[in-house]
Design a protein around this nucleic acid. Structure first.
Lengths: 195, 195
DNA sequence: CCCGTTCCGATGCAAGCGCATCACATCGTA
DNA sequence: TACGATGTGATGCGCTTGCATCGGAACGGG
């Protein structure tokens, strides 16, 4: 056998390059050549890892989705002693990608969401991610409030975080304003349900 | 002078073509040739109306933004006798583009938003649109509830509608579910503020 | 030790892109 | 009526794209 490269790690390496490029110039700026250059591999290597460009994009979306989800669950498990309310607060701020260090991830996410609106395979992946987050939010809200409307509250919260992230990216909101809006919504959620 | 074509109406005609193509294949599927073909004009005519492709996209974004805003204000003025609450309900359902006949506009909007995240000129246009909508929402909420937090509620509502639209487009939510979520949020808004 | 298998990376190719160019209709004017 | 200005649409150009191809390097088995 030849050199025997770890394919899986190479795929992740390429997916990271895709995310970097999508952050800088949007998904339209993601070409096979630029991806190969950024990942510091040859173009042939990229083509061997992924049969088509679309397959590469799908893997990259899965990759970044998994990374974000992992960060959320990590945040929850590292501070398990606190209440479900603060846990949900942590989860939402993590999801909404409001902090500057996650701005790049937010841009990549938005680029993929837009593409998913006209690409069923990408939409399928996103649906999976959102379903998972919806379930997580529902569980936390139920735990914190016992409300029978937890599913609906989870939908509202998830849509709100996405909307705030979007408005942040196009400069309509500042990070502080977005965070304040999110906090306010959570505060009212507790007030309503536990009263 | 030669044929003397109405430039402004032609620009709108081209902008409509841009929107149709963006709806079908995303913004990446918008090429000068396809735009010309869809608008039933020659490619040279497109280039005469807009010096560059980016200028054309900016005009198209302005065009669709104005159309949506116009529809919202039209909806408000055509039923002025009702309360500010129902007015806001109408405005939000109009903005959130949940109805099937506005699905195309929603897809176009999402495509432009994503592009705006990496294109300052487009972001500038979007910021103007959102500022106008934020002002409108703030006014209606103030009128309906007298709450001092009207600005924050308006931000929340605007972000929520955008998030719901996004989730609808990628198939995470059904139109009915999205509408129900929006209605629920509005109901709670009235309950909180007027209590 | 050498050969066969397996993987790699450079190159080629057809298609499509945005943009510039230019001869040609078209109409007001003298 | 003849002319010149002006807007028009077809064509060309340089470049990039995604994808297919192919010679060669790198190992393990006989």
């Amino acid at each position: 056998m030849p050199k025997q490269v770890d394919h899986e790690s190479r795929r992740r390496q390429i997916a990271d390059a895709v995310c970097h490029l999508a952050d800088e110039h949007g998904l339209e700026g993601v070409t096979l050549r630029d991806v190969a250059a950024r990942a510091e591999v040859s173009m042939g290597a990229v083509q061997r890892c992924f049969r088509t460009k679309e397959e590469m994009l799908a893997f990259a979306l899965d990759h970044i989705g998994a990374r974000i989800s992992a960060r959320v669950t990590a945040r929850l498990t590292e501070s398990p002693a606190q209440s479900a309310r603060t846990a949900l607060g942590h989860a939402t701020t993590e999801i909404s990608l409001l902090r500057p260090e996650h701005r790049a991830e937010a841009r990549v996410w938005l680029a993929f969401v837009a593409q998913a609106a006209v690409s069923p395979p990408l939409a399928e992946i996103l649906r999976g991610n959102y379903s998972g987050l919806h379930g997580l939010f529902t569980r936390l809200i139920t735990e914190a409030t016992g409300s029978p409307d937890a599913e609906r509250e989870a939908r509202t919260l998830l849509a709100l975080t996405d909307g705030l992230t979007t408005h942040l990216l196009i400069g309509h909101l500042s990070p502080d304003t977005a965070l304040d809006t999110l906090d306010s919504h959570l505060t009212r959620l507790w007030g309503d349900e536990s009263a």
